[in-house]
Design a protein around this nucleic acid. Structure first.
Lengths: 189, 189
DNA sequence: GCAGCTTGTGTACGTTTGTACATTGGAAGC
DNA sequence: GCTTCCAATGTACAAACGTACACAAGCTGC
């Protein structure tokens, strides 16, 4: 009945391969808006525009849906940061670039950032999320190390993580200059 | 009917001033064990050893109970860190002392540490928790600044926060020497 | 002793939840 | 064209939840 805007072929009905990904994406949006405790089959179904039975069909249990959503969001974050590192000129001013990255995470990319930290804390009480959370901060350290050295990479990963988390909770959008100064101070004494 | 083990006086019945605090303490324990989404009136009542009606009597709504529990836990954390700072000798090795503090937070004080980060992420979706969360990281920066200077204090607060959060999720207890090295690197370039 | 007030408890109700399951309906093989 | 299969859906149900509320039980002023 309904047709795909691009190809003109059938989209609904049996065998819709995009359906599962759409549900996972809706789950990420729900977590970003209401937190992990707001993730319910019904909320996700409403956000994805699919019937309730569809979410329980594609994801046997709610834990599975949560795991897929958080892992997908974390992977998207890693990919975004790899792009950031790769597009950095060789002689870039690292503290300035880091400040840009933090500001981006607090504004345009805020939902994905929020979901990342939801993943962290959710993993505290859900062992099956641990692999995803450790993969995320391993990637963080590796990306920063590729711009400096392993020891500095570790420091930057921790500082970046802590600073972003703190700033997410500040009501007035924080001062970019101060963020840059903090990184500059962390890198060179 | 039941008597206090220490004084032998009545404990139950009307006018039990310790009852409210005991419920709040039980709420902290529940959050530490099962996370914010596991905080229910019934779970708290069971953990505190009081009937269900008692929790709804002392805390009108579940949000109020959550707010009190998280604020109490955060204040306990701040007090613990002030003690740490005050008991520090004037010429102390700061990176070593910071490593000790982190190790303590990951082992003996783990439940309170966990609740602290639960507060952080819970505040992302609950504006009424923001004052408590910003008070917590303001205190963090101030305590570290009192050992160094304001700029270093900010860096240390972020690094401490991020590092502790990352290490909470590592399965083998982390290496103390590496933590100390990370702080040493963060402080002096 | 007795009325009045505050503290504390047990129960019950309406709502929301996760999940199971019978059923539908289009695609595919022949 | 008919059968078979599987993606997809709507409904139903038991459990758990927050909260309201009627009631019990002591303390207090007199």
């Amino acid at each position: 009945m309904t047709t795909n805007e691009v190809t003109g072929r059938r989209r609904r009905g049996p065998t819709d391969p995009a359906r599962r990904e759409r549900i996972a994406g809706a789950a990420i949006a729900v977590v970003a808006e209401r937190g992990v405790e707001g993730l319910t089959h019904r909320a996700v179904a409403a956000a994805a525009g699919v019937p309730l039975g569809s979410t329980t069909y594609h994801f046997a249990t709610l834990d599975e849906l949560l795991a897929v959503a958080l892992r997908t969001a974390a992977e998207a974050n890693v990919e975004r940061m790899r792009d950031w590192a790769q597009s950095l000129p060789p002689a870039a001013d690292l503290p300035a670039a880091l400040a840009d990255l933090v500001m981006l995470g607090l504004t345009v990319e805020r939902p994905q950032t929020v979901v990342g930290y939801e993943l962290y804390v959710a993993a505290l009480h859900r062992p099956y999320l641990r692999p995803a959370s450790t993969a995320w901060d391993d990637a963080l350290a590796e990306i920063f190390a590729s711009q400096t050295d392993p020891a500095t990479g570790r420091v930057l990963a921790a500082t970046f993580c802590g600073l972003e988390l703190q700033l997410l909770l500040r009501d007035p959008p924080p001062d970019r200059a101060e963020i840059e100064a903090t990184f500059r101070h962390a890198i060179s004494g």
